[in-house]
Design a protein around this nucleic acid. Sequence first.
DNA 1: GTGAATTTGTTCGTATGTATG
DNA 2: ACATACATACGAACAAATTCA
Lengths: 235, 235
Amino acid sequence: MGKDQKKLPLYIQIKNKLVSNIKEGIWKPGDTLPSESQLMEQYNVSRTTIRQAIRDLVQNGILETSRGAPTKVKEIPEDGLGNPGVIHHEIGTDMAVILLRMEKSQTHYHAKYQLSLPETADIFYMERLRMADGKPIAIQQSYLPLAIGDVIEQVADKKFDFFSTLGNHGIYHTNIKEHVSADNATQYEADILGVSAGEALITIERTTLGIDSKPIEYSTTKYTTKAFKYTIEID
Amino acid sequence: MGKDQKKLPLYIQIKNKLVSNIKEGIWKPGDTLPSESQLMEQYNVSRTTIRQAIRDLVQNGILETSRGAPTKVKEIPEDGLGNPGVIHHEIGTDMAVILLRMEKSQTHYHAKYQLSLPETADIFYMERLRMADGKPIAIQQSYLPLAIGDVIEQVADKKFDFFSTLGNHGIYHTNIKEHVSADNATQYEADILGVSAGEALITIERTTLGIDSKPIEYSTTKYTTKAFKYTIEID
DNA sequence: GTGAATTTGTTCGTATGTATG
DNA sequence: ACATACATACGAACAAATTCA
């Protein structure tokens, strides 16, 4: 790790140490952190400093505090993105996913650009059909760096949403950028999704950054409008 | 104002007082606040308390601080929503708006519900065509409480985005909820927007809350996909 | 279920660092 | 260069919620 830490404010240094502990899996989602007094001793700083670091991380959605109870590493909600403010809601009760294609590829240059990977790099590619109650609701194409792909390869056909899996491996996301657009379904898409050709679909193009600000996922998902709600709430 | 303030934490009370000053126009966007020491004297609290109140409001996007310089009321960016994270980008250089309809109405019960208004209340209704470089890009229907409507009535056919106007009248928004969906254009919409019937449109349904958590705007906007980008970024 | 210990939340005071004007 | 303003950091005390013997 960079030793430029020396010039950074103390509370930032503490913040980095806490995040490291989470990234290295020493503290997992749901785990409780040492109390503020213990952290004061451990890092030899005042309570003010500890609290400021923790406050920032709570604000970042990494930690969770409540009066009287120990501070916890925030759980990644199952089948949720865990990104405060944006709510994807796929409508249905029995959610499943069908793996259409999965490969390590050298093409997909467009995706490599989004993932800040060199053109020579291999990339993990995945096409999946998202289902609700036995009916298709979306086609999703995901592109991942190989290191990340290895982690979710085993759950690609099981986990509806794989961010929780990543979290369990200490891979967190701090920044998500989504671009929303609308398209008319092609005949191919219409056939797969069971709608009429030309029907309006919602397309979501997503780039997810990890804690170190490097991309960990790029995906394009086309949803049928009937089974999908997209809501943004900002405070 | 409610006198339940007595039981609230001091810094919350301070926060409310600061917000009041802004809402009442005593401090306008761009104005500088009194220094922290002055506020300490004025409200007879410690610097910690003042700073905690200010920190919250900075986080809320109401205030703006920088080292060495006085704290300011944040400006509302012209033609921007000012809501960190969500970026609407209407593509074009010469933006204009055409007022199609404007009235005080007693119907539109659906909108009254969204605005938390009683069914007996009058409502301000407005339908506008948003243009870029002389070509239509969206149809927008806005519903506002009468008090708000009066403020923007004079600029309805001039201001492309009226949030800055509201800000100048001390009306701020702190919470925005948007629902994004896709529709196929009806013949009527297609004619107005100059596209083919059935073409995919992006529909954005928006509810905006003021500082006091009461709705100040509800709108539905249908965009052509060619001239509109919707991006969300969350940290 | 009670009560004591623990833990986070709020608030004061003070001192020093650093950027602005 | 200087005064002013916000940023960081220390220490201390009490309040309020939770946890656990």
